[in-house]
Design a binder for these strands. Sequence first.
DNA 1: CGACGGGACGC
DNA 2: CGACGGGACGC
Length: 464
Amino acid sequence: MEDAFRPSTDLDDPPNSRLFLVTSKSITEDVIRENFTMFGEIQDVWVVKDKQTKESKGVSFVKFAKSSEACAAMEEMHGKCLVEGTKPIKVFIAQARSSGSHKDVEDEELTRIFVMIPKTFTEEDLKETFKVYGDIEYCIVVKNKSTGESKGLGYVRFHKPSHAATAIEKCDKTFRAILAEPRNKTPAPENDYFNNARPDHTMNDPGISAYPFADAGNYPRADMRGSDIITRCLMVSSRASVTQEQIYSLFDLIPGMDYCEMQQDSYGFSTGHTMIRYNNLGSAVYAKNKLDGFEYPPGNRLVVTHIDDGEDRRSPVGRMAMQLVAAQMMSIVCNPAGPQLRKTSTVYPSPAVPQCPRIQTDVALPPPQKLAPSDSRAKERLFVVFKPSPLPMDVLEDVFCRFGSLIEVFLVPGRNVGYMKYAERKSAEDAMATLHGQMINGVKMKVMLADPPKEESHKRQRTY
DNA sequence: CGACGGGACGC
DNA sequence: CGACGGGACGC
């Protein structure tokens, strides 16, 4: 599944996932590998050597699957001595091959993220939402200077690059989190759209899954924060317009809800984010398990995540207690007919909810796969025409992800067409081969390779 | 035939 | 000071 080597694209993908090491010339690839495996999935280690003498130049590159892994390794290993008597190593995030620059990448550029937020989000809301990924230095909501009204944009500055990277990788994708451009910098020339000249670059990156509980193997991480937290508070995110009352009714099916408020924009429209709190941990865990991924209204898949509620999770005792409760709840939720562990006294009423989008088709579909990380480069896109009308986004995501490396579904507003972005060419080709001319839920699809997006010559706007 | 989105500023 | 290899083939 994972090829050891691939033709080099001159890009680092995902961004900031490669380390630049300065070491004694005696440090070998094996030593580097031994010292860095614990931080994540190493995809490549390369010690730069003199072409003639084969002697190390004291410079190496270590490519990780994820930026958060590379950052954690950098934070932990910079200044460490790998072999007795050798000089301490220096560890930096490597400059992208295409950048041409050899300047050190500074923490300044790696610790501030830029996010889209509901218009009602305050800086405190921002902090509450993102502090689960690490210590925050400050949060900023971008506001209209004269009216003071939020523009629905925010910045979060973390203390550590690994925390910013983890936030980008793990926060709800409706935030569209990316690294913020440093304020003074001219927008990086950064590479153009997608590069269709090259074969695939296999990443096998467990990205943000659209499928609850699909996360299986995780790599050891430097810390255990992130979305592993378990709290009484939930954030419910919806792409389609829903009312607070609708969300309330749904989540009130589970006993113990004591708070439910939808974030609204200045016109009173729903922003798709609703905060919910239960008076006990078990109900919150149950609600997340039952309703994360639930289609409501049909065709719109809700995303439910725990958010930090300020309770002390650092104390080992508190954390263990919560995990215990969570584990009990899990066993009840996951084994409804379950054997010994079942305690009848704690069984909750089950909302009558289908779990996945119903897909009706004659096509033999492979099982769903994880989405590629949203910062993956699109190596191929499909252009899809629907008759008589487009399928819902989440159905499309469910169908088109099954060939691997799907980054994103984009429906052109007001038209019966859309685009599927893939991080690997083969995935797109497989999807096209299987789905072209087929019928899904009564909708006929033409599935073709998309023409490259129109060349806006040398505009800087990146497609994130 | 059926074609292209979203998002930039305070310590 | 300390920056960029190896090998590539299926549709």
